[in-house]
Amino acid sequence: MYAQMVDTGVSKVQDVAQMTPEERAFQDRIDADVKVEPKDWMPEAYRRTLIRQIQQHAHSEIVGMLPEGNWITRAPSLQRKATLMAKVQDEGGHGLYLYCAAETLGVSRDAMIADLHAGRVKYSSIFNYPTLTWADIGTIGWLVDGAAIMNQIPLCRCSYGPYARAMIRVCKEESFHQRQGYDIMLALCRGTPEQKAMAQDALNRWWWPSLMMFGPPDAASVHSAQSARWKIKLLSNDELRQRFVDQTVPQADYLGLAVPDDRLAWNAERGHYDFGEIDWQEFHEVIKGNGPCNRERMQTRIKAWEDGAWVREAALAHAEKHAARERHAA
């Protein structure tokens, strides 16, 4: 979800009969819930898939700083400003652990950033939507971080050790983020009519993009099946989406907000909410680069990277000169 449609490089799930002895031993360890560690042998496709998945996740954290950072300078109270700065800072920290986790698979952070800037690797579709009012900050915390937690809690048990451990740390912070988002919504919904309307407008705009975060329906996804076999994806897109809807609708009710879906209804027989059709064309357009903010998000990231080049070069040059002076003095 922070990693959507991760390409596993396979056209169908590999059959046990086709596996080499090494691959079979690897699959046996995964089946026995033994964690894979950086120095262990692993199939190339597993390594490549994980690199793509973890780096998509890391890029999502970094690009995700932009829509929220957009409101740091305008937060309406000092308390909210401090909380938002802390949250966005946490996201930078998550990006950092995740880049480090990906580096254990033999790819450098610079190479990953180059992949992002060249459009070779995506980030979550959700961050291509604009934050138009303060209520969007509440809604992102409530829905987007809520959806992220839903996906990341199972990932704490994923087969790759460094990723699983990073997820444990990330999840602790994300649950705090979700609470702060919901707290913003509560304040707005208990506030003036204008504040309540702001909250409803934000929910209207973010509801469907939040459901899209879980990725396309299960039926079409060969990658999901292979990733499930490798235990780097533990629950399917549709299962996670259903859990999210089931958890979130009562929260919207409590706020007194209407979920913008005419077909939303509790299904007692299934024990779940039924909900309407997602506009998958919109999702695929956003993934392709045609969302409301795709170009702007990438321009901002690329500009930050390019504008910072002379600073990074200076730090390196100083470190080299400093080391040379130390050697000379020794």
């Binding site: 700065m85 966005v88 800072q89 990074r312």
Partner: peptide, 15 residues
């Protein structure tokens, strides 16, 4: 300093 968020020359600097 809040204006810098997401635009620092390196992730560590941003943080």
């Amino acid at each position: 300093l809040g204006e810098w968020v997401g635009k620092g020359p390196a992730l560590e600097e941003d943080i």
